[in-house]
Design a protein around this nucleic acid. Sequence first.
RNA 1: GCGCCUGUAGCUCAGCUGGAUAGAGCGCUGCCCUCCGAAGGCAGAGGCCGGGGGUUCGAAUCCCUUCGGGCGCGCCA
Length: 563
Amino acid sequence: MNPTITEGSSFLPRAALDRFADALRRAMSALYPGSETSAVDFEAPRRPEFGDFATNAAFALAKRVRTAPQAVATALLAELRKNDAQTCRLFSQLEATAGFLNLRLAPECWHAALAGMLSDGTQFGSARENGSRISLEFGSANPTGPLVVVQGRTTSIGQTLADIFRFRGYGVFTEWIINDAGAQMETLARSLFARYRQIFDSDFPLPAESYPGEYLIPIAQRIESKDGRKWVSLAESEWLPYFTKYGRDGIVAEQKQVCRRFGVHFDLWQSEKELHASGKVKETVALLTEKGLTYEQENALYFKATQFADDKDRVIIRSDGRPTYLAQDIAYHYDKLQRSDRVIDILGPDHHGYIDRLQGIAAALGFPDRLDVLIAQQVTLLHADEVVSMSKRAGAIIPLDEIIDEVGVDAARFFFIMLAPGSPLKFDVDLAKEQSNDNPVYYVQYGHARIASVFRNALPDDVREAATAKTLQNLTHAAELALIGRLWELPSLLDNILAQFAPHRLAHYARDVASDFHQFYSECKILTEERDLRVARLALCLATRSVLATVLRLAGVSAPETM
RNA sequence: GCGCCUGUAGCUCAGCUGGAUAGAGCGCUGCCCUCCGAAGGCAGAGGCCGGGGGUUCGAAUCCCUUCGGGCGCGCCA
């Protein structure tokens, strides 16, 4: 073996690629002076026989030097082989095909990568704290009814992003805003009062404007069992504050309960009403006025949103003096922007038109690049291949709680992040609750359970030794190297998910890891007679189990030992 | 009318900053358990990437246009 490449870290895939990039730039400089400044990027080739990585550096050059890409690629590779033979030994395959330079890492590099994963243990894929503070708001709902499917989606996406941010070293603060101000709260109170009266008089009508869902009945019953008929004959002005608060608190408590059950946690449940009471709304409005970003018209105060790419100016104080929802949101975002390096809002599909306004707010407050707004598209429920329609106004709602009852937390969390947030989601309830191989959740969990089973069958001494395996060079099978390569992707995948708000890639990656493992499992007998090979394969299982456990945890799904 | 999202295999969807013969799961047709968990593996059929233009060495991806689906355009929250 070549002495220059036996020194530990230069074996690692990243180091090998960096060395190749340097060597390639030297070759470019020698053959086509001046061209070495262009970046050398690596991508995953389309087909496995092309190797582990490919670079398209020759394409950009081809245009410059008016030569066919394939000829450029061939020339570069010949030059590189001539002058950088050491670097070439880090690769078991180096080819110029169709203009691409295709690379396959030497097995030693993958062994070094695996050794690194084993020493990282369950921390593999994490990153050190980077000091950056992120505020993540998601789920937020009106406290007028139970959480429904779309909140299942926004909370699943938000919680998974939050957990990945944290795993990658960010300081994360998650928040939920309770929209407990405004006329809707009186509607809630009147609806609740009607439900209360119905306990004594079943003919008592719901008000014209109401939340007709039956979810208010148990709350009304609690009032009745506490206070009896106390409120029946009182005037509205007497009971309204009580029923508002009782209804609001009862529903928020239920929403918190569902979140807890769903594995979703918020560091702050921010009440809109409190925001007003604290004076922050007034202060922020004053600040905007100081900056000359407001004007009065017909007794109302407008925010000059059009100066910040919104399509019209927006009222923040109504002509009767009451602040609008936007005024509250400006104050809330000002607060978040000041205490965070980045602010992310994950909103439902009915908030499209609100993005420009929020971005305008951030810019007006002096933080033009700190806010990201992510929209999760709508969710439709499928039952027996039929769309289940829902309407909150008609009272025909299916609470998130019921869906969790039916399919379980694991399947629900996985299904909700499985699609790109921008794609409308058809949630197939029957598929999600099916405990079969049709269900992608079980496929991944099965991979984890299968590994656990292997460890139950293995000799304890072997397992101990696997954690610091010295025999990794025995891993030479294509399925083994492919699996290591897949595991190795984890850190960069997580950063990619964060950079592009693409949590669905976590679900797809989980499936890919499981798939590569199952293939390895069926092609390579783990508990073989040869001890060194056996220990090396157990080491690979150890790393795979760790990655599956990490990915499932980040997705909010359990990683079972048996199923 | 304006704005945002969306249209890829029979179905549900991937396709990251434009890159090689467009991928996966389900479904369909075969095959593989004397062997660590078959909730698994292997192979096959199935696509003018909604239509039409353009940009360039190269487009599912970028631009324009057109058609279909969803959602927004309040002194509601």
